[in-house]
Design a protein around this nucleic acid. Structure first.
Lengths: 143, 143
DNA sequence: CCTAAATCCTATATGACATATAGGATTTAG
DNA sequence: CTAAATCCTATATGTCATATAGGATTTAGG
């Protein structure tokens, strides 16, 4: 299961993608539209800003916009940012690799081999799922 | 990430599969071979027994054996037993379905749509991964 | 029958983490 | 100058995963 932080982040980014050509959206508005606790969302938006995914403007008429086009923001990037590794076991991830303490021989572990395959499939799907793709899916689902 | 309970369970089951035609294995032996805390493993084996995956015999010369052939025990079954839902969000699972609180319209949610695809791919891989398959992979990896 | 070896069972410690809130400091436009 | 917004730090809070303790029960064999 992904964390609520990650889920809220995805929801917030979807709102920004929908608004891509409009003005900046405030945390309060995003929170309302996405049914997200405001203060919690603020922290999430801060992380997204620091990670270079959104651009946040302070002060009156401030708010948040996507820093890149919606075609270039992948769900994979967002999940990695908030939840770290995507794999189901620590020994199958690229960026967060960690040996399993109990592991006897990683090289010949058949269990690991299965999880390697799952990670590959998952990452592929999460990389092809950009915010633009998410909106496209929604248009399709509405018919 | 899957829980340690689930990982330990898979490791323990692999030991039993390797031993499939031998006598029952005690928790102590499995724990030693799999580098698992004994008492913790005991509780896990108890769950596996209650779930009908292994058969446990008490008393002297007691121990645990697979209740079904290794070709019929899927990793999917084991993960579901210990970690519950396999999907990355509660709204995409068959057996543990739960609506996302913050969800506005599940039917047309593009984010959910992506996770539906991931769950399908993951479940497929976990179902085809039986204990026999795991052992087969290990023989292959040793070459 | 007795003992050793094993599973079975319940309770509990404990530490980590995710979720969430509080309260304010800072910036910015009008 | 003020209102609206982000930014920042600290903290509460509860839940859960991991793990251990201590014994009750069963079973085979000498």
């Amino acid at each position: 299961m992904i964390s609520k932080r990650a889920k809220y982040a995805l929801n917030a980014l979807r709102e920004l993608a929908r608004d891509e050509k409009g003005g900046p959206l405030s945390a309060a508005i995003i929170a309302e539209r996405g049914h997200i606790p405001v203060k919690f969302l603020e922290a999430i938006l801060l992380d997204l800003n620091r990670a270079g995914i959104i651009l946040s403007k302070r002060g009156r008429n401030g708010g948040h916009v996507l820093r890149k086009p919606a075609t270039e923001i992948q769900m994979a990037e967002v999940l990695r940012l908030f939840d770290g590794a995507i794999g189901l076991v620590p020994c199958v991830t690229y960026n967060y690799y960690e040996r399993c303490e109990e592991c006897v021989d990683e090289e010949t572990c058949g269990i690991r081999d299965v999880f390697v395959g799952i990670r590959a499939a998952t990452v592929k799907l999460l990389q092809s799922a950009t915010l633009a793709d998410v909106l496209k899916r929604e248009r399709k689902l509405r018919n």
